[in-house]
Design a protein around this nucleic acid. Structure first.
Lengths: 245, 245
DNA sequence: TTCGCTTGCGAACGATGTTCGTGCCGATGT
DNA sequence: ACATCGGCACGAACATCGTTCGCAAGCGAA
């Protein structure tokens, strides 16, 4: 202790190079954590190297000592989010229920950082947490009696489906952010507009759409996600998966 | 005829303002068609306003008289591609087969312009061709006996699934383009690397993945797409859809 | 001490989407 | 036939973006 000069007010002509910031000395973790904060607060489009650097009280060039480029930062961000996913121990008798719960859990974790899905769809996940989750899913299904190849493909399709749905949700969220309205007003406006538009379509060329406008627009993101999830799980029955009903 | 002066070599001191270009006089259609050519030949990342303008022998500002902004151009591009989708007349007895064929057909049309999926996932399709396809899908399923709300949600999930899968394929294609290798070499290299990596994982923490490496990597894009498609269609059975088996 | 290496960072490069101002050209009104 | 006017083409510029370069400062090893 004591090797640093005690804090003393700077001479007024010695203008401080910056707002002192007093940040931790910059590390990959700090960069990732800051990036996640920006992503959650302002969305994918606001997530730039400059924005992250500014949040850390430095310039964009400083980041490149800890991160190869933006793509690598996005990879790290994605795995950082996947770290929040808790994987259960396989219980052979309840494989279908476990898979459904896990899929919903992943859906919720990703949705909590909605715009991360723009990243998830942009590259093949191979970080440690992605591996952990894949291993858990394989264990659940194979120990439950699903043939290994079917289980492998199922995991692939499930992850694709989850990422795509969250991605779609993030699109709506981005538009809502851009519109300035609050969430409720935005979606009722949005679907109202769509409904009005559908109803003005010529009935002779669009008999089905005009007749079933309400069905087309009914149901929010969550309900539709569960519907598709149950389709995928239900379809497994004919591929040698032990059915629980 | 003859109202144009016959072609004569320009005086050498009169440098032509550009390659004479002799383009058609610029229209929304010409812009969209050119954009599609760029997209197919060089991918989504190469599709810039400047690139399209250059291809048309003009500057980027000229496009904005015919197209509001890049997003609108992408919308137009997407519907232009959907125009290539042929929609069948509904045949009530074969609704499931018709839906499967139509989904595969859409998958193929989108795959032929692979990078268009980056657009498809980025906004809610509402162009005339998207409407036409939705109407056809509704007709097939409802006339086949599927309850209207289930049919509506099914269409939503199917379109999401198709777009997501083509999108994933476009990612691989983009990486392959960037790598400079040809398609075959690229995918065998790529999956070879993944397989090698999986096999080096510690067996105690990843018993499932190390044991089933081959299953995880087996099957190309098309086979997996059909697998997921059949999961979705098969899952419909429990939602009041008349089953054909 | 001196060397070398990592880290921080200001400045700059090339590229992007988009806007502004200015012409031109052809249709329209008289 | 001539004047006028509106839309289209387009060069230039602006604000951003990701990324690289070159240099200064700190620090551990020799």
């Amino acid at each position: 202790m004591g090797e640093q000069a005690q804090a003393v007010p700077l001479p007024p002509w010695r203008t401080p190079r910056k707002a002192p910031a007093a940040r931790q000395p910059l590390s990959q973790d700090a960069i990732v954590e800051t990036g996640l904060r920006v992503l959650d607060a302002e969305g994918f489009d606001a997530l730039s190297m400059r924005r992250v650097a500014q949040e850390l009280g430095t310039g964009p060039a400083s980041l490149y000592a800890h991160v190869a480029n933006k793509d690598e930062l996005l990879d790290l961000l994605y795995d950082r989010v996947l770290a929040e996913v808790e994987t259960p121990r396989a219980d052979p008798g309840r494989w279908r229920e476990q898979m459904r719960d896990l899929a919903l859990h992943i859906y919720e974790v990703l949705s909590a950082h909605a715009d991360i899905a723009r990243v998830a769809m942009a590259d093949i996940p191979s970080g440690p947490n992605a591996l952990r989750i894949t291993e858990a899913e394989l264990a659940i299904m194979i120990s439950g009696g699903v043939p290994p190849r079917i289980a492998s493909w199922m995991i692939d399709r499930l992850n694709l489906y989850i990422a795509a749905d969250v991605h779609e949700g993030a699109m709506y969220a981005a538009r809502q952010r851009a519109s300035g309205k609050d969430a409720g007003e935005f979606i009722s406006d949005f679907f109202g507009r769509f409904g009005d538009y559908y109803r003005t379509l010529p009935e002779d060329r669009f008999p089905m759409m005009t007749a079933h406008v309400d069905d087309l627009l009914e149901g929010g993101g969550r309900v539709r996600f569960e519907f598709g999830l149950d389709l995928l799980l239900g379809g497994l029955a004919r591929y040698g998966a032990p059915g629980d009903r």
